[in-house]
Design a protein around this nucleic acid. Structure first.
Lengths: 166, 166
DNA sequence: TTGATAATATTGAAAAAGTCAATCGTTTGC
DNA sequence: GCAAACGATTGACTTTTTCAATATTATCAA
């Protein structure tokens, strides 16, 4: 996933990272592009994704699977359609992801009593177990992603992002 | 690129959007996943990307091309390798993107006087022209993405993202 | 200087992710 | 009751991502 990451664990290189960028904190920080929030969010999500994926490898999960599992564990009983629109996934991608998790018996498709067309996603017991462990990993990844921010700043960031995204 | 966007301009559906989510502001906002900044940044970048791509279609640019063009216009004379690490792109992707833009004579590869292995990216005159127009579009897209935030909040968001990403 | 090692751009292949149209069963609104 | 719309599914296809291999150039130590 990066020039490092040989093949061992995943917790790997967490420290000794003077700057997240490959270059010396990047002489490009002042460029116009670097001021665009579209660019900044893209870079953030790229970093966050890579970090979280590393953390999840030994649970055999990727963040996209994790996201589905998380929603199945949320108690909100989302239908596949709802899940797709929440996660910005095409219905066909949802099918593939749900298939994968269902084959591993982490979640199951339950009939929607309101509408026989739709299927509701619910985590199994082992799904909940795995989610518990996985969410610890993603929490760790988040901690790492946000080390540069104070706790107040972290909250503020969450607030602002939520505001533009919901 | 989306169910809307017939073929006319690009300014299209900017208003009449009670909530950015498909659902009624989403009953999933309270879920644990929705609190993770990895999720929030993913959603932001997804939204921002879609928005910017719409805006750029009639310039025949995607945000990824736009990003390369922007850097070639920045005056920083990035090498391909630098560009790749700045934009989180694999070297082979850089080659493809640069090829595409160079064929359109928007940028060119110049020899790096310091290192004959590397090639420096510089925009042509028409590259600069296109960038000028394109950046207006992405500015508009950003405005739209951030409507929910006050100007101060927008600045704060930029500051926080920059802090975690550089 | 030479020779080993690493770095840059490039190619090509393959896997993953994203997009789209068509279909089946079901629901909704007329 | 019917037509139109909707949710899940399938399959095809494009785009994006990831990786390994290579040629040329740099770097560095002997």
């Amino acid at each position: 996933m990066s020039p490092s990451t040989p093949g061992t664990a995943a917790v790997a290189a967490s420290q000794t990272r003077p700057t997240p960028d490959g270059e010396g904190a990047s002489r490009f920080q002042q460029s116009a592009l670097a001021q665009e929030v579209a660019f900044l969010t893209a870079r953030s999500r790229s970093r966050g994704n890579a970090l979280a994926n590393q953390m999840l490898v030994d649970l055999d999960l990727k963040v996209r699977h994790y996201a589905v599992l998380a929603m199945a564990c949320s108690g909100t009983n989302p239908s596949q359609r709802e899940l797709g629109s929440f996660l910005d996934l095409d219905p066909s991608q949802v099918v593939a992801l749900v298939d994968a998790l269902e084959h591993r018996e982490l979640i199951r498709r339950a009939p929607d009593p309101r509408d026989r067309r739709s299927k509701i996603l619910i985590a199994t017991d082992s799904g909940h177990d795995l989610y518990t462990r996985a969410s610890e990993r993603t929490r760790a990844a988040e901690r790492q992603l946000l080390t540069a921010l104070t706790p107040q700043e972290q909250d503020e960031l969450r607030r602002l992002l939520a505001k533009i995204v919901f």
